Amino acid sequence: MGVIWLVIIGAAAGFLATRLMKLEMQIIPTIAIGIAGALIGGLVLRFLLSVMGAFAGLIGAVLGAMLLIWLWQTYIQK
Protein backbone atom coordinates (compact mmCIF):
# COMPACT_ATOMS: atom_id res chain seq x y z
CA MET A 1 0.00 0.00 0.00
CA GLY A 2 2.93 2.35 0.64
CA VAL A 3 4.09 2.28 -2.99
CA ILE A 4 0.55 2.93 -4.25
CA TRP A 5 0.31 5.94 -1.93
CA LEU A 6 3.63 7.26 -3.32
CA VAL A 7 2.32 6.90 -6.89
CA ILE A 8 -0.82 8.88 -6.03
CA ILE A 9 1.18 11.54 -4.20
CA GLY A 10 3.68 11.53 -7.07
CA ALA A 11 1.11 12.67 -9.60
CA ALA A 12 0.31 15.67 -7.41
CA ALA A 13 3.99 16.23 -6.65
CA GLY A 14 4.87 16.36 -10.34
CA PHE A 15 2.24 19.02 -10.88
CA LEU A 16 3.43 21.04 -7.87
CA ALA A 17 7.10 20.66 -8.80
CA THR A 18 6.57 21.90 -12.35
CA ARG A 19 4.64 24.90 -11.06
CA LEU A 20 7.26 25.69 -8.39
CA MET A 21 10.02 25.51 -11.00
CA LYS A 22 7.92 27.54 -13.50
CA LEU A 23 8.18 24.82 -16.13
CA GLU A 24 5.60 24.01 -18.81
CA MET A 25 5.54 20.29 -19.62
CA GLN A 26 3.05 17.89 -21.08
CA ILE A 27 0.91 15.98 -18.61
CA ILE A 28 2.44 12.51 -19.11
CA PRO A 29 6.08 13.55 -18.42
CA THR A 30 4.87 15.67 -15.51
CA ILE A 31 3.10 12.71 -13.91
CA ALA A 32 5.96 10.31 -14.70
CA ILE A 33 8.58 12.61 -13.18
CA GLY A 34 6.32 13.22 -10.20
CA ILE A 35 5.83 9.51 -9.60
CA ALA A 36 9.55 8.77 -9.93
CA GLY A 37 10.37 11.71 -7.69
CA ALA A 38 7.81 10.55 -5.16
CA LEU A 39 9.32 7.09 -5.09
CA ILE A 40 12.84 8.49 -4.67
CA GLY A 41 11.94 11.25 -2.24
CA GLY A 42 9.45 9.10 -0.36
CA LEU A 43 11.90 6.28 0.16
CA VAL A 44 14.72 8.62 1.19
CA LEU A 45 12.49 10.54 3.60
CA ARG A 46 10.47 7.56 4.86
CA PHE A 47 11.84 7.94 8.36
CA LEU A 48 10.21 11.37 8.53
CA LEU A 49 6.81 9.79 7.95
CA SER A 50 6.95 8.18 11.35
CA VAL A 51 8.12 11.41 12.98
CA MET A 52 6.18 14.14 11.21
CA GLY A 53 3.27 12.34 9.55
CA ALA A 54 2.08 12.28 5.95
CA PHE A 55 3.07 15.91 5.34
CA ALA A 56 6.71 14.83 5.28
CA GLY A 57 5.88 12.38 2.49
CA LEU A 58 4.45 15.19 0.38
CA ILE A 59 7.54 17.33 1.00
CA GLY A 60 9.79 14.43 0.05
CA ALA A 61 7.75 13.73 -3.08
CA VAL A 62 7.91 17.36 -4.23
CA LEU A 63 11.66 17.58 -3.53
CA GLY A 64 12.28 14.32 -5.37
CA ALA A 65 10.23 15.48 -8.36
CA MET A 66 12.07 18.82 -8.41
CA LEU A 67 15.41 16.99 -8.38
CA LEU A 68 14.37 14.80 -11.31
CA ILE A 69 13.08 17.81 -13.27
CA TRP A 70 16.38 19.61 -12.72
CA LEU A 71 18.36 16.53 -13.82
CA TRP A 72 16.09 16.11 -16.86
CA GLN A 73 16.50 19.74 -17.88
CA THR A 74 20.25 19.71 -17.28
CA TYR A 75 21.27 16.41 -18.88
CA ILE A 76 18.51 14.92 -21.03
CA GLN A 77 16.71 17.81 -22.68
CA LYS A 78 19.86 19.17 -24.38
Rank of each mutant, 00 (worst) to 15 (best):
P29T: 10
V7Y: 01
A32H: 04
L20W: 15
V51P: 04
G14A: 12
L68W: 05
E24P: 02
F55T: 09
L43R: 02
M66D: 03
V62D: 14
W72V: 09
F55E: 06
G10M: 02
L63Q: 03
G53E: 09
Q77M: 15
G2H: 08
L68R: 08
A32K: 02
L67W: 00
K22D: 07
L6Y: 12
A12H: 03
M52L: 14
L48F: 10
G37I: 05
M52G: 06
T74S: 07
I27N: 12
Q73H: 01
R19E: 11
G14D: 15
I28T: 13
G64S: 13
E24N: 09
F55H: 05
K78E: 06
L68G: 01
I9G: 15
L71I: 10
L20A: 02
G2C: 00
G37R: 12
A17G: 13
A61F: 13
E24H: 12
L6H: 12
F15K: 15
G53N: 03
G10P: 05
A65Q: 14
L58Q: 07
G41V: 03
Q73A: 04
E24D: 08
A13N: 09
L43V: 15
I31P: 01
V62T: 13
L39V: 14
Y75P: 01
K78L: 01
I4V: 14
L6K: 01
L45K: 05
G60Q: 07
I76D: 13
F15L: 13
T30H: 12
I76G: 02
V7H: 01
M66L: 04
Q73R: 09
L23E: 12
L6N: 07
E24Q: 05
F15W: 11
K22Y: 00
Q77P: 11
A38K: 02
I8N: 00
V51E: 06
Y75L: 06
G41E: 10
M52N: 03
I8V: 12
F15T: 14
G64H: 07
F47Q: 13
I31Y: 07
I40M: 05
V44L: 04
V7G: 02
A11N: 00
L58E: 08
L63T: 03
W5I: 14
A38F: 01
A54R: 04
L58A: 06
I9D: 06
E24R: 09
L49C: 08
W70E: 03
R19T: 01
T18G: 11
I9C: 08
Q73D: 02
Q26G: 15
W5K: 11
A32G: 02
G42F: 06
S50T: 14
A32N: 05
V3R: 08
I76R: 13
I4F: 15
G37C: 13
G53T: 05
I33A: 03
L23I: 05
A17Y: 01
Y75W: 04
A32L: 14
F15D: 08
I35T: 09
Y75H: 09
L68Y: 06
V7S: 00
G2R: 10
A11P: 00
I4E: 04
I4W: 04
W5F: 04
G64F: 04
A54K: 02
K78H: 02
L48M: 09
I31M: 07
F15I: 15
A12Q: 08
G34L: 14
M21F: 06
G60V: 11
E24Y: 04
A12D: 07
I4Y: 06
G10A: 10
K22Q: 11
Y75K: 07
A54D: 15
G34N: 11
V3S: 08
I59M: 09
G60P: 10
Y75Q: 02
L6G: 03
L23P: 04
